[in-house]
Simulated assay, not measured.
Amino acid sequence: MNPHQAYYDAVTKMEEAGVDSEFIQGWQSGYWLNPEREEQRITDAYKAGYEKGKEKDPTGFEAWVKK
């Protein structure tokens, strides 16, 4: 699968599920191996997303769905 399509599909799935935007932003940054945010701006959701994104793992976001 095209990596851009995999990225798009994962982000779309997270957005449709109502995942915390901090997690999604972290996942996106990690996926493209961007530097992490400044320490004072890192949240638990962002950090979790960043780690999953670095692994290009589109799963495990369920804990970050906003209720």
Rank of each mutant, 00 (worst) to 15 (best):
M1E: 13
M1P: 12
N2R: 12
P3F: 02
P3S: 02
P3A: 02
H4I: 06
H4Y: 14
H4S: 06
Q5Y: 09
A6W: 11
A6K: 15
A6C: 05
Y7Q: 03
Y8P: 00
Y8T: 13
Y8Q: 08
Y8E: 14
D9S: 04
D9Y: 03
D9Q: 07
D9E: 12
A10Y: 00
A10N: 01
A10V: 03
T12P: 10
T12H: 04
T12F: 03
K13H: 08
K13T: 11
K13L: 13
M14R: 02
E15I: 12
E15K: 15
E15A: 14
E16P: 01
E16M: 09
E16Q: 13
A17W: 07
A17V: 06
A17P: 03
G18P: 01
G18T: 03
G18N: 05
E22H: 12
E22F: 11
E22V: 01
I24V: 05
I24A: 03
I24K: 01
Q25D: 11
Q25K: 06
Q25P: 06
G26C: 05
W27P: 03
Q28V: 07
Q28Y: 00
S29I: 05
G30Y: 05
Y31S: 06
Y31C: 05
L33T: 09
L33H: 13
L33A: 12
N34I: 06
P35W: 04
P35L: 05
P35C: 09
P35M: 05
E36Q: 14
E36I: 14
E36Y: 10
E36G: 13
R37I: 12
R37W: 13
Q40M: 05
R41A: 12
I42Q: 02
I42L: 07
I42V: 06
T43L: 01
T43R: 10
D44L: 11
A45N: 06
A45S: 08
Y46K: 07
Y46R: 09
K47H: 15
A48I: 05
G49F: 01
G49Q: 12
G49M: 12
Y50D: 00
Y50M: 04
E51G: 12
E51M: 14
E51F: 10
E51Y: 14
E51W: 04
E51T: 15
K52I: 03
K52E: 14
G53Q: 03
G53I: 02
G53S: 08
G53Y: 07
K54D: 07
E55D: 12
K56Q: 15
K56S: 09
K56I: 05
P58G: 09
F61N: 00
F61R: 00
E62L: 04
E62W: 03
W64T: 00
W64G: 00
W64I: 00
W64N: 01
W64V: 01
W64Q: 03
V65D: 01
V65H: 07
K66W: 11
K67L: 10
K67I: 04
